[in-house]
Amino acid sequence: MNTNRENGSLYTNIQNKIATIEFGHPASNSFPSELLDRLTTELNSISNNNEVSVVVLKSEGERAFCAGASFDELVSISNLEQGKHFFSGFANVINAMRTCKKLIIGRIQGKTVGGGVGLAAACDYVLATENASIKLSEFTIGIGPFVIAPAVERKIGVAGLSELTLDATSWKNAYWAKEKGLFAKVVETQKELDNEVEVLANKLASYNPEALSQMKKVLWEGTENWKNLLAERASVSGELVLSEFTKKALAKFKK
């Protein structure tokens, strides 16, 4: 179901112990703050739902998986408080994914930019199509991927994070992302993607939920400081977005 609402849409469907969360926005499935808040709330709720063993995170449509944070909202930031709040959106979602007691499968059907790469990195297992190229373009507008960096680095290491961040204008293809460990499996078509997601989700849902939950804890060991770390990073981005450089760069993009 596509959405034209300016704050986007979020639907959760629970069947056979699998919760499928689908988000959407007419601007390439980007995230305004309100939609990030809704996703955070939904993940926290599912974490404590005994009817759910595994989560599938997906986005609407055939094209982009996620274009990151809302550009319109980014442009309208006028003070530090707004800036911190805006960048805290992805910080809160990543922390909710990290602390969610259920394993999260990411279904990535297309291009993914900025915060979208952070979402993919915060999933526990990612299946993607060949069209799922990734890019961290934050430098081009005078900011950096500070909030999502810990999640991306955890999956692809400092070298991968560095390559993605510094080469801010280039797309890396899905096979690069797989080689680096961001994607677990890459398939050709969306039909194959849906099939793979379904098979994996059903297998996981058939396992001992307590074992899954304990494994989730093991996978995320060493990230206990992220609540504070990501909040600090949101402040860094919140300051940078107010800089003259960024204001000029955003104005150019807007044209």
Score class of each variant (00 low, 15 high):
A149I: 04
P209R: 01
V147G: 02
S162G: 08
K155R: 15
N173I: 05
T112D: 05
A121S: 15
W176M: 07
S133R: 10
A128H: 01
K203P: 00
A159F: 08
L127C: 03
E192M: 14
L204Y: 07
I143H: 02
I143N: 13
N173Y: 07
E153P: 04
L200R: 13
T189P: 07
A151G: 08
N131W: 02
K135E: 06
Q109L: 04
G181A: 09
L166G: 07
T169Q: 12
K180L: 09
V186N: 09
K135M: 14
K191H: 10
L212A: 08
Y125G: 00
G114D: 10
I148F: 06
M215T: 12
V126W: 01
I141N: 03
W171A: 10
K111P: 03
T112Y: 03
T140R: 13
V187R: 08
A128N: 03
A174C: 08
G106P: 03
G181F: 02
V197M: 14
T112V: 13
G110S: 14
T129H: 12
V186R: 12
F146N: 01
V117Q: 04
W176C: 03
S170D: 13
A132G: 08
S206C: 11
K172R: 15
V113A: 14
N195L: 15
I108S: 06
I156N: 02
S213T: 14
E192R: 14
K180Q: 14
K203F: 07
A151E: 05
L182I: 09
I143K: 05
L166M: 14
G118V: 04
R107V: 03
A205R: 12
N195P: 00
G142Q: 09
T129C: 12
K203C: 02
T129R: 13
V126Q: 03
G114H: 13
L127Q: 00
S170I: 10
D124N: 05
T165F: 11
S162W: 06
R107D: 09
A149Q: 06
A201I: 12
P145K: 01
E153Y: 01
Q214Y: 09
A132T: 07
A132K: 04
